[in-house]
Structures are given as structure tokens and as C-alpha cells.
Amino acid sequence: MKIALPLLIAFGLAGAAVAQDAGKSVWQGIYTSEQADRGAGVYAQRCGACHGAALNGTGEAPPLIGGEFVSHWDTMTVGDLYDRVRTTMPQNDPMSMTREEYADVLAFLLKNNGFPAGSQPMDKRSEVLATIGITAEKPASSGG
């Protein structure tokens, strides 16, 4: 089926996905391994009870690993995911951690979903993370 273009523009009201040529990708190593390790601790403390030790999900809390989870964030930005977690998680006590802790736990999630670590730690400013695109599939040309 074909979708008419004007319709797509109308949809772009909330969190519009706008193609952009220059910009960073989650495939370029946007967090450090140390950060992800710290994030593992945060995860065990604050997330694991609901989302499961192996990130598989339990009860109503969905898995935070695997194709379905990544699809939810495909073509969104790391800033979108960061602010979603920051403002709504842990579900029973949102916005209860520091921005650093949220960045660490996000690094842990990215690592578990196969996005590579790099040399620079993840920024903790939403507006900066909003310039880093998430794509489920590794773009052919992206650097490591």
C-alpha cells in the first residue's frame, strides 16, 4: 500500500521523525563500557525486579532486550528513549535517580541490545542525546 505524503506530514506532530543527513548514530559507540557496567548495578537495583535479571520482562513489564523492544525505538533518538525512561521509570517511582544514573542504565540497555561501546561516555543532556539516532539495523557506512 502507498501512503500519500501529506498524510505523513500530518502525523509528524509529536516527536516528529525528520530525516537528517548529518547526525550521530547509536551504532557509532556513544557510551563507554564502564558506563554500561555501572548501569548494570543500577539496573539490578532499580529495574530488574520488574523487567527481569535477563531483561526478559515479567508480568506486565515488557522485555528490554530483543527485536521487539528495539523496534519500538527504531528511527527515534537516544534522547527520546532517555527521557521516556527518566520521566516514567522506575514505574513505581519515576525521576527518582540522577541524570548520570539514567545515562548509565541506558548504556546498559544499549549494550545488551548489541549497540557498541565507544570511548566517550554518554551525555546526560536530553537535547544532546536527541541528536543521536537509533536504528534497529546497522547502517552500512557507520564507523565503529
Binding site: 537528517q20 548514530s25 527515534m76 533518538t77 536527541a130
Partner: peptide, 10 residues
């Protein structure tokens, strides 16, 4: 390569 970006949600 296309990278997608959005308006800050924060």
C-alpha cells in the same frame, strides 16, 4: 546513511 533526529522531547 540516514540518521533520524527529532525535536527534543524533554
Amino acid at each position: 546513511m540516514k540518521i533520524i533526529s527529532t525535536l527534543p522531547l524533554s
